[in-house]
Design a protein around this nucleic acid. Structure first.
Lengths: 192, 192
DNA sequence: CTCTTTTTGGCAGTTTCTGCCATAATGCAC
DNA sequence: GTGCATTATGGCAGAAACTGCCAAAAAGAG
């Protein structure tokens, strides 16, 4: 057990802590102290703060799971699909998964708390990097071409907006995103 | 003086506080306590926290100034310009202004601090609303059409990326944005 | 000048977060 | 299996961020 062949005492399972904290936050509508989150995860407050410098960071591992799932789905999509089609399909595939149920109950709480929203935004900003890598071949550019990240940032911004709108109107986020893509195609903002 | 014909004691000048705090943060490389910021602004810590629930919020009024300037410039642009052209021109007009000098020294500090970055992102999220309103006529859609906000979110995401890249490479942010727009036009991501 | 209104600012207390160090839990060498 | 090196945990003290409460200050209105 532990972490492979590493030497000392094994580290706490951060993903497990994240899930435990998410459960508490969902139940308490976002109003929980670090002491409560740590207790629910079975670790000390000191250890909590060692791994999560900001209280909000505790949800990071949970959200990161979702990001990785989307990237994996994206790579499975056929090469002749457009970027927008492939992205929609990948998100749709993940949005049906079981981890999504928790994020769905969590999302209104996250959006109601500026600090939690910040955390989510940071994650999507980080996500631009691997999303760009997954996108580059489909765009026909080298993997390290800044243009890929430019596109990734646009997609993530649209995804963020779709989530916010779907929470506000209690509608389906993927459908929302599809409509936004259609608007952008119609208005053709970046025509040469 | 005070706030028009209002009754009681006049409120502290929040914009002045914001500028004073920005000066301290710039000088101290972002490492300043609330006590120091309050002192520099000539107000008590209690009053500081009354107006700025989070320490980082103190920079909000400063950044908001920039947002309003861009919106104003945008409305001055000729109607036959594309959205991308008009946005670039508006930003360029503002980026030459004198308030920008302060934000330029501040930006690396903001981007180095996750909480300050969050604050900036919240502001741009708020900005999507008035940007959408300023954009709608140019897009040929009603002012309350969600499509206008969809476009605004995209532009702001690109602006954010341009700022980050220009700080990282010490290059001109407006030029950076122009290049990104060119990439998006070339790759034509949202083609139906 | 007095009354009403609204904000400020001090004080006490909670919560978040950090530095320091002893202690616990693991792998490895023998 | 027994010690040893290594790495993480967890308690304690303290700084810093924030909140509730209320008295004092600074305005306008009569």
């Amino acid at each position: 057990m532990g972490a492979g062949g590493r030497r000392g005492r094994p580290t706490v399972d951060l993903v497990a802590v994240s899930h435990a904290a998410a459960a508490v936050l969902a139940r308490r509508q976002g109003r929980a102290t670090v002491a409560e989150l740590a207790e629910a995860a079975g670790i000390s407050v000191r250890t909590f703060h060692r791994h999560f410098p900001n209280k909000e960071d505790v949800l990071r591992p949970l959200f990161r799971e979702g990001g990785h799932e989307i990237a994996a789905e994206l790579r499975k999509r056929p090469a002749d699909e457009t970027v927008a089609e492939a992205f929609l399909a990948a998100w749709e595939a993940v949005a049906g998964g079981r981890f999504t149920e928790r994020t769905r109950t969590l999302m209104p709480i996250v959006l109601a708390d500026p600090r939690l929203t910040t955390m989510m935004d940071q994650l999507t900003a980080e996500g631009a990097e691997w999303l760009a890598a997954a996108l580059a071949p489909r765009l026909g550019v080298p993997a390290d071409d800044p243009a890929a990240e430019t596109v990734a940032a646009t997609l993530l911004a649209q995804m963020r907006l779709a989530v916010i709108r779907s929470v506000a109107t209690k509608s389906d986020a993927v459908e929302q995103l599809r409509a936004q893509f259609a608007d952008l195609a119609r208005l053709d903002v970046f025509r040469a």
